[in-house]
Amino acid sequence: MAVGKTERLLNLTMALLATRKYLTKSEIFATVSGYEGGLESMERMFERDKDDLRSIGIEIEVGSLSAYFEDEQGYRIRPDIYGLDVGPITPRELALLSLAATSWRTASLSESAASGLRKLRSLGIPLADEEIAIGLTSVDSPQQYFDVIWDAIDTRRLIEFSYPDSQGLLVHRRRVQAYSLLLWRGSWYLIGLDLNRAAIRTFKLIRIVGEVDLSGPVGAYEIPEGFSAHDYLRSIPNEQLREARILIRKERCLGLRSRGIAVSHDEDWDLLTLSFHHNAQFVKEVLWYGSDAQIIEPADLIQLISEQLQGLVT
């Protein structure tokens, strides 16, 4: 059963690719192997086949056969639209793309990259003379939700999932129009329109609770034209870069030391100048070194650090 259909789809694709003029339905039914039965069932078959081929990315062009009889419609597949056209690719570029295709360990990305690469390798590009001296490095998973969200973005389907509020106390059900996935400072984020709040929100994939469900029909929304995840995140006010001065014990605080410039302060201590982004994050980093590090400036961080330590001794 399935073989019959595959065979018919292959023959149809080949026939429509080979023809220069549009083929009418009756020509297709008469000549393409696999169309059998009454006219009505062949018509139905053909409609389904067209949709099926479109779903794997093959566009069938519909055109008028004659300038005089507009209702006489014909079909063909234009080889220039069917075929891969990425312009000239050099052997070296192909080698780079082979490496790029191995960069992701996530199944959906690595499989798509591999099949894309295979098509490029069907172009007859000769192999590069020299190997490129890059070993294999791979980027770890954008987690379990990645695939379903990618699907949702591609098909413009609504997604639903549970996600904690900003205090992390209560988990709410969210209905979201997914716009974009972004790897930002090491974590994957979903950016999209949160329908309950009627505003664009950012969701950290790792904080999603349970499953991400696709819901409703495809094509349910539009992504605003020119929407850029990068620009959106940049537009959220960020703590700016500030400078700190810290006393660190000699031969200690190696991690901190390598981030700034240290000069000798006295017998036991060096004075380190370095910059930081995020107050709480920086305090955490300094406290890692316990009594081997002491913030001198800025004053508000001293306040913060003292309060935090006070909380631990009482």
């Binding site: 694709t13 080949m14 026939a15 690719l17 080979a18 990315g57 093959i58 080889p79 639209i81 069917y82 075929g83 891969l84 056209d85 990425v86 780079l96 793309l97 490496l99 790029a100 295709a101 191995t102 960069s103 992701w104 959906s108 990305l109 690595s110 499989e111 798509s112 990259a113 099949s115 894309g116 690469l117 295979r118 098509k119 490029l120 069907s122 172009l123 890059i134 490095t137 980027v139 990618w150 591609d154």
Partner: peptide
């Protein structure tokens, strides 16, 4: 008539582009 590979899908192109980004 199958003398050329099919064009790449959006997913295939995107996956290769992201792979290049990693490199």
């Amino acid at each position: 008539s199958l003398d050329r590979p099919r064009k790449m899908s959006h997913r295939e192109l995107l996956a290769l582009i992201l792979g290049l980004d990693v490199l």
